[in-house]
């Protein structure tokens, strides 16, 4: 058995595992009767459908005459840098305010895409920090803090 169609193979694998996982959780909910369906019935059916769909994709992807595709070019650096920057934004926004989070996010974004020009990072901070404050805080009045939380106590 050879994985001919790698893209469909991994998609199928994801569908199958996700489907089985959800079906398991759904089966712990009350299923109910056909007149009064419980909260578990519908997700269980959908999750089983998803798992079957995954199985179909898996089987088709190992057949000899499937279209040959390759799963490649997964860019760990970009994925990690961008998502870490976003997660840091989430962690820092409440305790430290925009004045810390915006530069952190922008530095993280820069790391995602070498070569890094610190001059450009500085410029983007200088432009985007005031812009963010003016648009979201001053004009729209969203509950975002500019400064770290201890300034407000």
């Amino acid at each position: 058995m050879k994985i001919v169609d790698q893209k469909n193979f991994f998609t199928g694998l994801f569908y199958l595992l996700f489907g089985i996982g959800v079906a398991y959780v759904a089966s712990t909910y009350r299923l109910g009767t056909s007149t009064r369906m419980g909260p578990g019935f519908f997700p269980l059916v959908v999750a089983i459908g998803l798992a079957i769909t995954g199985l179909v994709l898996l089987v088709a992807s190992v057949r000899g005459h499937a279209e040959s595709t390759k799963f490649e070019g997964f860019s760990f650096r970009t994925v990690f840098a961008v998502l870490a920057a976003v997660v840091l934004f989430g962690l820092l926004i409440e305790p430290t305010g925009l004045v810390v989070t915006v530069p952190v996010l922008l530095v993280g974004a820069a790391l995602a895409h070498p070569p890094i020009s610190w001059r450009n990072v500085a410029i983007s901070i200088a432009v985007l920090l005031p812009m963010t404050w003016v648009i979201f805080v001053a004009l729209l009045g969203l509950q975002l803090r500019l400064l770290p939380a201890f300034f407000y106590q």
Binding site: V99, A122, I123, I125, A126, L129, P130, L146, L147
Partner: peptide, 15 residues
């Protein structure tokens, strides 16, 4: 030049 400008901006916003 640019960075001193940004500092100024930041300072005025803090105020």
């Amino acid at each position: 030049m640019k960075s001193s400008l940004s500092k100024l901006l930041l300072a005025s916003m803090v105020l």
